[in-house]
């Protein structure tokens, strides 16, 4: 386990250390593990060269926040319906969602662009939030449905006898039990939205709508090549929010997986 952990950690540590080295050490003919002198020049370069860094960060945060919120609410409601309610066409809809899950989302890129162009939401936060929710929803619904399946129906029946209405059963009885699954969804959706590139690149065209994932590519040199110092600083910076979210929800995330949140 220790060796496995080391294997996973080494690339991150190497990236961090490289981001703190001067160029001559990065491009040195001998391998230099620790920087002889710590420099933040690559971080400064990232922030100064990417003048719109704050704008990109704000866009990313906003888009990710609303995507995560929308996905969590919609998937927990839909997952509940698929798990606990009987309605006409339930199996058909479930199969349809499964089908959507199997398609690469690049397929929807052009139709989405055309639709957004018609309603004038290209290069807006909403223009990214809506497709991101749509992309993340199928998997999230399956996670929530799996989790709700493991909650005994008797619990809900008891709540109804105690006077809860339909919404209250969902809100006050079922959702508190589904926290680990929600945490799993939050983390998955956060990761998917934070780093998503293809939609963000196509559906936004200037700093008003562009996210960090798009902005970071502007640091690349010609012929799509990278200066390693800049690249490592960029990777390190982009990992920070992901680490914060993961570490703060780690307990629930692991519990969610352990309790079968990923069960179909």
């Amino acid at each position: 386990m220790f060796i496995l952990s080391i294997l996973f950690i080494v690339p991150f540590v190497w990236t961090l250390l490289t981001s703190l080295k001067i160029n001559t050490e990065i491009y040195s003919s001998t391998v230099i593990l620790l920087p002889s002198k710590i420099t933040f020049e690559h971080y400064i370069k990232v922030i100064t060269q990417m003048k719109e860094f704050l704008q990109y960060s704000y866009n990313t945060l906003s888009v990710t926040f609303w995507t995560v919120l929308g996905t969590a609410i919609l998937s927990s409601m839909t997952g509940y319906a698929f798990s606990k309610l009987e309605f006409w066409g339930k199996q058909f809809y479930l199969t349809f969602i499964l089908l959507v899950l199997t398609l690469p989302y690049a397929i929807y890129l052009i139709p989405i662009y055309i639709m957004e162009d018609k309603v004038n939401i290209i290069n807006t936060h909403l223009g990214l939030i809506l497709p991101y929710i749509a992309i993340n929803l199928p998997m999230s619904i399956f996670i929530m449905r799996g989790n709700f399946n493991s909650i005994p129906n008797g619990l809900m029946e008891a709540a109804i006898i105690d006077g809860c209405n339909f919404f209250q059963v969902w809100r006050r009885v079922v959702m508190p039990l589904a926290k680990p699954a929600v945490a799993t969804i939050v983390i998955f959706t956060f990761i998917n939205s934070w780093g998503e590139f293809m939609m963000a690149r196509t559906l936004s065209y200037n700093p008003a709508g562009q996210t960090l994932a798009v902005g970071i590519t502007f640091l690349r040199d010609e012929a799509a090549s990278w200066q390693y110092g800049t690249l490592c600083a960029t990777i390190t910076l982009s990992l920070i929010p992901l680490l914060i979210v993961f570490l703060s929800m780690q307990k629930y995330f692991i519990k969610g997986i352990m309790e079968g949140a990923l069960k179909g």
Binding site: Y113, R201, T202, Y205
Partner: peptide, 15 residues
């Protein structure tokens, strides 16, 4: 002035 990454034609073609 706005920036784009590399020579991807998709966005221009769509627009």
């Amino acid at each position: 002035i706005s920036k784009v990454d590399n020579a991807d034609t998709t966005t221009n073609m769509l627009q």
